[in-house]
Design a protein around this nucleic acid. Structure first.
Lengths: 333, 333
DNA sequence: GTGAAAGCGCTAACAC
DNA sequence: GTGTTAGCGCTTTCAC
C-alpha cells in the first residue's frame, strides 16, 4: 500500500533512519549531531528516498520567502532583460530568487499581478510601472522599489536612469551640428521614461531655439518604421528616437526613401543596446546602465528588508555615445 | 503594546471582526457565508488591517506552489526572453508564475540552481541546459521539461525547434546560389543547438559537395565581429552564423573590410530576431518560434502536473526567411 | 546529545 | 451556517 507518487517528507526520512524528525533536520542543516552512526543513517535514508525539504514549509517556518517579485511591462524588451539580469545577479548573491511576471504594458494586468505577487514575496520591484501614482500609493504595504519611474512625494524607493540629462545631451549634440528642426519618435504613451525624455527635449530645444515635431511611435522597430514618414513630411533634419529599437526601424525607413544617414538626416537612439554599435552607420545613442539599475533596485530593497521604512532614491547617469549616425545639418553651417 | 511591523494574520482579522478564522477564510475565498453582517465585519476588518493572506501558508496547505522554476543560460539573450514570454503567458493562464534564475552559461551554477529551485516549485523548465545527459538523468524527481536540448532516451519532456532542418534549408539555399565554400561562425561550445546546427551544416554540405570552414565565435555580436576574419582568410564566399546577433557582428566586420553583402559575401543568421528585417541588407535567417517553444514547454509541464510520468517531445518547424543578405556567389554561375 | 512537541498561517473536515 | 480543530512540512525551543 505504498503511496507511489507522494513526495517523501521529513517524517518518512525520520522513520527510515529510526530517529526523530528533529535529528533529520539537524543533520541536513549541518547542526551539531555527535553520533556519527545517526548522521550516517539519516544521510543514507535521505539519499535513498530522494528526499528534498519542502521550500514552502521552510518559508512558512522562517517567515520569509527569499523571493523578490518583479513586474515587467514586456519581458522581450532588451532594456528590461538587462535590468532583470542585474537584479537576478545581485539578489542571487543574497540567496534571493526572482518571481517574474509580464504585465504586457497593461495597467489592469499590472495591478492584478502586484496583488498576486506581493503576498508570496519578501518584496516587490516594479519596472517602469504604468500605474498612476495614486494606485502606487495604496501599495505601500510591503517593501517596494520602482525603477525608471517618478514616485512623487511617496515613501517608495526608486532606482533609475537620468533620462532627462541624457536627452539634454542629445539635443545639445544635434544643435552643435547645426540642426534647427528636430523630430521625435515618441515611446509608449504610458511610459514615464518617455514623458521624461520628451520633457528634456522640449526644454532643451526651447533654450536653444530649436523646432520640434513629435510623432507617436512606440517601443519597437515596427513602430519607428511606421512613424518616421510623418517626421520627414514635417521637414526635420534630425530624428531623435525614444529608444534604439525605434531608431533601427526609422533607419530602415530612411534607407527605403533613399536618404542617407547622417548625410541627409541625422538619427539618434536611446539605450545603447548591444547591436547599436554594429549598425550601418553605428548609432549615436545614450548609454543606459540598465543592469546597474537592477543592482541598485536590489540594494534599495535590501535596505527595506533590513529595516522597514528606509527608502531612498538612486538616479544613475546616462551619457551620450556619439557615433556615426549624426552629422552636420544639410543646410547648416 | 501593538506590534508595529508584524503583518496581520487571519487570526488578527478574526479577532477584529469577532468571528472565527474559518469564517474569515470563507468570506475571503467567496465560500458561502449567509449572514451579511458577518461578511461586512470581516471585509471591513480585513480592509482596515490591510490584511493579505500569506501565499506561503496557502501553498503549504494546498500542497502546490503554483510556481514554475525556470533556468536560463543568459537572461539578456533575446531568444530566451521570447521563450520566457511565451512560457510566462501560457503558465499565467493557469495561475502559475515563473521563478526565474540565470545560470550565466555555467554548468555548476546550473546544477546549483536546479537543486535550489526544484523544492520550491511544482515543476522545472530548463532552457537549453548545458549539463551533461547523465546529470540530467539524476534529476528525474519532479516534473521537468528541457527546451532545445537532446534528452537521449531519458523520460524527460522536451520542447524545441528543428534546428537541423532549418540549417539544412540554409545550406541548400546557399548552394542553389552557387556557393561552394561556406564559413560557419559557431556558437557556445556547450550549446546543443549549436552542435545540432553544425551537424546539419556538415551533413548538407557533404551531400552537396560543399567545403566548410568553421570558426569559433559565440553568441554575441562581439563574438561574430571577432571571429569573421578567420573565415575571410579561408576564402569563403558565404558566412553562416550561429544566430542573428553573431551575424550582425560579422556584417559590421565585412563592412569594415570594404566588402559588400551579398555582392562579395553572402551572410545568414538564425533566430529572426525583430531587428533582422531592418538591417542593411535585411538579413536572411531562419525563423524560430521561440515564444511558441515556451508555450509548448508549459503544455508539456502541465501534462506531468496532471499525471506524473506523462512525458512527451515537441519539435517545432523552423523555416528559412530569405532576405537580401544572400545572393549569387561572386565566381558562381 | 537526542526526542517530543509547539507553532509558522492557512483551509477544510467535522461538530454543533 | 458558523465555530472548533487538525494538519500541511518544517525548525527550534524545551525536557530528559
Amino acid at each position: 500500500m505504498a503511496d507511489v507518487v507522494r513526495k517523501p517528507t521529513i517524517v518518512d526520512v525520520a522513520r527510515a533512519a529510526r530517529v526523530s524528525t528533529a535529528t533529520v533536520s539537524r543533520v541536513l542543516n549541518g547542526r551539531r549531531v555527535t553520533d556519527p552512526e545517526l548522521v550516517r543513517r539519516v544521510q543514507q535514508a535521505a539519499e535513498q528516498l530522494r528526499y528534498r525539504p519542502s521550500g514552502t514549509a521552510r518559508s512558512l517556518k522562517a517567515g520569509v520567502t527569499r523571493l523578490v517579485g518583479v513586474v515587467v511591462p514586456d519581458l522581450a524588451n532588451p532594456s528590461f532583460s538587462e535590468l532583470l539580469r542585474g537584479l537576478a545577479d545581485a539578489a542571487g548573491g543574497y540567496g534571493h530568487r526572482l518571481l517574474v511576471a509580464d504585465s504586457k504594458e497593461r495597467q489592469d494586468e499590472e495591478r492584478t499581478l502586484i496583488h498576486e505577487l506581493a503576498p508570496r514575496c519578501d518584496g516587490l520591484v516594479l519596472c517602469s510601472p504604468r500605474l498612476p501614482l495614486e494606485d502606487l500609493a495604496r501599495l505601500t504595504a510591503g517593501p517596494l522599489v520602482c525603477t525608471n519611474r517618478d514616485v512623487g512625494g511617496l515613501s517608495i524607493s526608486s532606482a533609475g536612469v537620468d533620462s532627462y540629462a541624457g536627452m539634454t545631451e542629445v539635443v545639445r549634440h544635434l544643435a552643435a551640428l547645426g540642426h534647427r528642426h528636430l523630430g521625435y519618435l515618441a515611446g509608449p504613451p504610458t511610459s514615464w521614461s518617455d514623458a521624461e525624455r520628451q520633457r528634456a527635449l522640449g526644454d532643451a530645444a526651447a533654450a536653444l531655439r530649436l523646432r520640434v515635431t513629435v510623432a507617436r511611435a512606440g517601443s519597437t522597430s515596427e513602430d519607428g518604421h511606421a512613424a518616421l514618414p510623418e517626421l520627414l513630411a514635417a521637414g526635420v533634419s534630425a530624428v531623435v528616437a525614444f529608444n534604439d529599437l525605434v531608431a533601427i526601424g526609422g533607419l530602415a525607413r530612411l534607407r527605403e526613401r533613399g536618404l542617407t544617414v547622417p548625410g541627409d538626416v541625422s538619427l539618434t537612439g536611446f539605450d545603447d543596446i548591444p547591436v547599436a554599435q554594429f549598425l550601418d552607420p553605428p548609432l549615436t545613442t545614450v548609454r543606459l546602465p540598465n543592469e546597474e539599475v537592477g543592482r541598485q533596485a536590489w540594494a534599495l530593497l535590501r535596505e527595506q528588508l533590513r529595516q522597514s521604512g528606509r527608502h531612498g532614491a538612486v538616479r544613475l547617469a546616462a551619457r551620450l555615445v556619439a557615433r556615426a549616425s549624426t552629422g552636420t545639418a544639410p543646410g547648416g553651417r
